[in-house]
């Protein structure tokens, strides 16, 4: 469905995506990466908004840029909010469907049907300015799917939504993805996980990992990390930490601090905490390594570049 071969996109001297090669068959995929990683550029290339500076992009076997055949089969829900606040959701969706080449009557039917599907049937005639952020997101989704695309592309669809609205939107998208293909860009792993989608992890414009959620999780779990401990008896506590199977190596930093290299930082931190409590050692700091998504991405890109094992 989507194929990128050695694709690089430059904005002057700034790199949007860097030498990306990936094949995504029909199905649901999450494009995961921190803000500024190149996700929107990736989506821009797939949806024919941008031309690659180098390499080839193919969607449904064809070049998407300036290609109505491909564009007809794509629905895009961009990250930006709808700013046509005076317009109703119904008029907005009708406008987009008409732009896809349908008659005004067909556009009206499709807009009503789709707004009903996304749960905006009753609010469809209200101005967008009076709708909540979650409702506007659903209106945006309706605009992206009302022309029946084969591939739905969503850019940060859950940003700024409260948990209830997020849950509703996830259910909607999951339902839609049962019969069509889906590509969702997000910087939150659990959002993509909730969609049962395959993963492609992007950082600094580079594709650093791809596979199923389990495969990427496994990879994340095996990444080397560390636990930093500040206490009043570092040598005694380090000795106990060394005895645990999670510890790979220990080094001392100053007189009251030691750092343990590990691949299971959370389990090791719990073990060290329990040992300190049992021995009556005062622990002032117990910090498992950076397992935030940015931290994990950082490690992934190091592995990708061959700077870490």
């Amino acid at each position: 469905m989507i194929s990128l071969r050695g694709v690089t996109k430059l904005y002057g001297t700034v790199i949007g995506v860097n030498d990306v090669s990936v094949d995504l068959g029909a199905g649901a995929y999450g494009l995961l990466g921190p803000n500024g990683a190149g996700k929107t550029t990736f989506l821009g290339l797939v949806t024919g908004q941008l031309r690659p500076s180098m390499g080839k992009v193919r969607v449904f076997g064809e070049r998407p840029f300036f290609n109505p055949r491909v564009l007809r089969r794509i629905g895009l829900c961009p990250a930006s909010d709808i700013t046509e606040r005076a317009m109703s959701a119904r008029d907005w969706v009708r406008y987009l469907v008409r732009l896809s080449g349908f008659t005004p009557a067909a556009a009206a039917l499709r807009a009503d049907r789709t707004l009903e599907q996304v749960g905006l049937g009753e609010a469809a005639r209200r101005p967008l300015s009076t709708l909540s952020k979650g409702m506007r997101q659903r209106a945006k989704l309706a605009g992206a799917i009302a022309h029946d695309p084969d591939l739905l592309v969503l850019d940060e669809p859950f940003d700024g939504l409260d948990p209830v609205a997020r849950h509703e939107l996830v259910s909607l998208v999951r339902r839609w993805a049962r019969s069509r293909s889906l590509l969702v860009a997000s910087h939150l792993l659990h959002e993509v996980e909730a969609l049962d989608a395959g993963l492609a992890v992007i950082l600094g414009g580079r594709l650093v990992a791809s596979g199923t959620v389990e495969e990427v999780r496994r990879l994340i779990d095996t990444l080397p990390s560390e636990v930093r401990v500040v206490c009043d008896a570092p040598r005694r506590l380090a000795e106990m930490a060394c005895a645990s199977p999670e510890a790979d190596a220990v080094r001392f930093v100053g007189t009251d601090t030691f750092v343990v290299d590990t691949r299971a930082p959370v389990a090791l931190a719990e073990r060290i905490g329990a040992a300190a409590s049992a021995e009556g050692i005062l622990v002032r700091e117990l910090v498992p390594g950076d397992r935030s998504l940015e931290g994990i991405f950082g490690r992934l890109v190091q592995i990708h570049r061959g700077e870490a094992s």
Binding site: G48, P68, D81, I82, L96, L99
Partner: peptide, 17 residues
């Protein structure tokens, strides 16, 4: 500025329209 460009440009013939 209004963020509507991308909605229009992704439609077949949207730019011409």
């Amino acid at each position: 500025e209004r963020g509507t460009w991308v909605h229009v440009a992704v439609r077949p013939g949207g730019r011409r329209g």
